[in-house]
Design a binder for these strands. Structure first.
Lengths: 162, 162
DNA sequence: GGCCCTGACTTCCTTGAGGAAAGTTGACGG
DNA sequence: CCGTCAACTTTCCTCAAGGAAGTCAGGGCC
C-alpha cells in the first residue's frame, strides 16, 4: 500500500499489525473466508468488491500467509478456494473487538439487530473478544457462531486448516 | 473515505466499524491520544504523518465523536488538545487485539522486543484484549500501561474524559 | 509598532488506488 | 472442436489520498 510508508519493520506491534490490517477490505475478506465463503465469486458477490481489488488483496493475503490457496474438485471440475491459515483465523479477536465496538458506538441502522457471538463449546453468548465471557475459554474460530438476526442465520465459523 | 462506498449504514457491525477504523492512521492517532500525546505537533512528530492528513483525520475523529477538541492554557497561550471520548477510549481492546496478533504473527524486527500490556489495577500482564487474563476484570484505558522495552518506557494510558 | 515564532491548519499538485469492462487461461461437456 | 464457466488479469479512466509548502492567528519581545 504505497500511499504511505512501509510499517512491517516497525518496532511497535500495533503499527506492524496495521501494516496489514489497516485496509478495510482485508478484514472483510477474512471474515468471508472464516464464514466458509472461500471462492472468488462468493467473496466478491458477498462483500461487493471489484474483481481487480479482490484479486490484488487475495494475492497479498496469500503472500502474507493469512490465506492459503488450495485446489479442490467439485462438479467434476477443479476449483480454487482460499482457506485461513492460523494467522488468518487468529484475526477472530480483532473482528470481535471491532464488532463489539461498533455495536456500542455506531448507530444501529434501520432493520439492524444485535449480532450475538456464540461460543458453541459452552453455548453462551460472549461479550468479550478473545476469552469467552461465559466459560473463560480462549475463543477459536471453529468454536464460534455469529448470529445475525437480520439475515436469520447463525453461522459457525471455519477455523484454520493445517 | 469515498474511494469505496459508505458502510456506516451497513447492517453488519463489523462493516460499520471498519467504515471508521479501516484506515491505518485512525488507530495510530487514537493510540497517541490514549498515550497522552494530545497536541497536533506531538501526534504528528510521534507517528510521522503529514500536517494535511493529520488535520483531516482529527476533524473526522471529532465528527465521529471519538475525540473531543478542548482548549487549554499553557505558556500563557491558548492551545488545543484532543482528548478521547468514551467511544475513543473503547478502541483499547481493538488495539490490544491488533498488538497481540502482530506479536504472534509478524516477524519481530531487529531491536524489537515484546510489548507487555500491564493491568495496573492487579499488576499482572494481560494476554487477553478486553478482559485482564490475570484478574478477569474488564480492561479500561486508564488502568492499563504499555511496557515498551525498546524505548524503556512504561506508559499508563489516559482514559476517556467526560 | 514592527517583527518573528510557533501552532494549527489549508492549498495545490502528483501519484496511485479503486472500479468497469474486456481479455485470458485452462478445464470440461456436448 | 467449439462454447462455457470459473477465476483471474489487464487496461483504462477517474478521483481522491498523501505530502510539501504556503497561510493565518495569536503572543512575546524589543
Amino acid at each position: 500500500m504505497p500511499l504511505r510508508s512501509d510499517w512491517s519493520e516497525d518496532l511497535c506491534p500495533v503499527r506492524r499489525g496495521l501494516d496489514v490490517l489497516g485496509d478495510p477490505w482485508i478484514m472483510l475478506i477474512m471474515r468471508e473466508v472464516l464464514h466458509g465463503r472461500c471462492r472468488f465469486d462468493a467473496i466478491r458477490d458477498s462483500i461487493g468488491i471489484s474483481d481487480a481489488v479482490l484479486s490484488r488483496r487475495l494475492r497479498l493475503l496469500v503472500d502474507e500467509e493469512l490465506l492459503r490457496k488450495v485446489e479442490y474438485r467439485a462438479d467434476r471440475r477443479t476449483h480454487f478456494e482460499y482457506v485461513a491459515t492460523e494467522a488468518g483465523a487468529d484475526l477472530l479477536p480483532i473482528m470481535h473487538a471491532v464488532s463489539i465496538w461498533a455495536e456500542k458506538h455506531t448507530p444501529m441502522p434501520e432493520g439492524g439487530a444485535h449480532m450475538a457471538l456464540i461460543h458453541e463449546t459452552c453455548g453462551a453468548e460472549t461479550t468479550s473478544a478473545d476469552l469467552c465471557s461465559g466459560c473463560g475459554e480462549v475463543l477459536q474460530a471453529g468454536d464460534v457462531s455469529w448470529d445475525k438476526p437480520w439475515k436469520s442465520t447463525r453461522e459457525r465459523l471455519v477455523g484454520a486448516t493445517s
